[in-house]
């Protein structure tokens, strides 16, 4: 992993061997530029790249490519997310060319939440290709300079290719193999689903390390601080593929009124400290949902600052 594939900051940080730190920003439900800035500006110089979600949970928001370019204009590096739910292969490829031309260098390839979760459940779902095929497509465009149909690209997009992995979805025994498939398809880095069950994640990482996956790809552990007991209970019960142990919910409950959010942050910091030492983990992806302004404090307390300048 010595040669730079995209030249993105995230790629440089990871390849220099630093423990990476990425953040996340969900664009607003509107064209409110000030609102978008309010969400991403606290992340400036605090994280190595900011994931820009693509109509997450199938709720219509400002497009991820447009928000990504606004981040670039403001001196932040985006990690452009793209889901397969809303675009066919024509739109996918043209958006990839478009974002690259606008300066995007990281891209996260996702299937996307099914539209039945969102605010337009009546929509037709596309899924022309799946996330695995999307990873392979971005790699082909970058490394072979060819479109899906083998035609030459005039100016191939050189993107650092990301993919997601959920160690907590079922069937658990297959999850590490699916991660291996994504790496074989072309993923340069992985960001995992939010981790709460540390025991299960340790087990997952041991399997990944035993298979040598951490040597082929940079694996970033997903962290989302819990803001309330209600949030923990909702995630435990209503978010498919999320594993929130009862002991964690009890710990938050025991923190007492007015102190739950602090306890959630404490747990997140403990997690980050453990990830720094965990074999195979190359960084942390902090998804502070609607809590972006708390990220600088979390980063400081977790010893993630200052970020390396390369």
């Amino acid at each position: 992993m010595s040669d730079l594939r995209s030249g993105s900051n995230l790629e440089k940080v990871l390849k220099a061997g630093h423990f990476a730190f990425t953040g996340e920003c969900g664009p607003p439900k509107g064209a409110n530029l000030e609102h978008l800035k309010e969400k991403f500006m606290p992340l400036k110089d605090i994280v190595d790249a900011v994931n820009i979600t693509d109509n997450q949970t199938a709720v219509v928001r400002m497009s991820s490519w447009a928000a990504s370019t606004i981040l670039i204009q403001n001196g932040l590096e985006p990690n452009f997310q793209m889901v397969c739910r809303d675009r066919n292969r024509l739109a996918i490829q043209s958006d990839i060319l478009g974002v690259y031309a606008m300066g995007v260098r990281n891209m996260l390839c996702l299937s996307g939440d099914h539209q039945s979760f969102g605010n337009h459940p009546q929509a037709k779902n596309v899924y022309d290709i799946d996330s695995m095929q999307l990873i392979a497509l971005v790699k082909k465009m970058r490394d072979e300079g060819k479109f899906m149909n083998d035609e030459e690209i005039d100016g191939p997009p050189r993107l650092f290719i990301g993919a997601a992995s959920n160690p907590f979805a079922d069937p658990f025994e297959f999850r590490v193999y699916r991660l291996a498939m994504k790496i074989a398809a072309g993923a340069d880095f992985i960001q995992t689903q939010c981790i709460y069950n540390m025991k299960k994640f340790r087990e997952f990482m041991k399997m990944a390390v035993d298979m040598g996956l951490h040597e082929k790809c940079h694996i970033l552990a997903g962290v989302t601080p819990m803001k309330s007991v209600g949030m923990a209970q909702y995630m435990a019960k209503s978010v498919p593929g999320m594993d929130v142990p009862e002991a964690l919910i009890q710990r938050l409950r025991d923190a007492g009124k007015g102190k739950v959010a602090e306890e959630g942050i404490k747990f997140a910091i403990e997690q980050i400290e453990e990830f720094k030492e965990m074999e195979g983990v190359a960084g942390v992806h902090l998804m502070a949902i609607e809590w972006e302004h708390r990220v600088p404090e979390i980063a400081e307390r977790a010893g993630m600052l200052p970020r390396p300048k390369i």
Binding site: Y127, A169, R178
Partner: peptide, 21 residues
């Protein structure tokens, strides 16, 4: 598959059930 995935399962598979229901 709700997403017609050819390289599944997605991260929403839980307890043998699909994320949609």
């Amino acid at each position: 598959c709700s997403k017609s995935l050819m390289n599944g399962p997605c991260g929403g598979s839980a307890g043998g059930k699909c994320e949609i229901s």
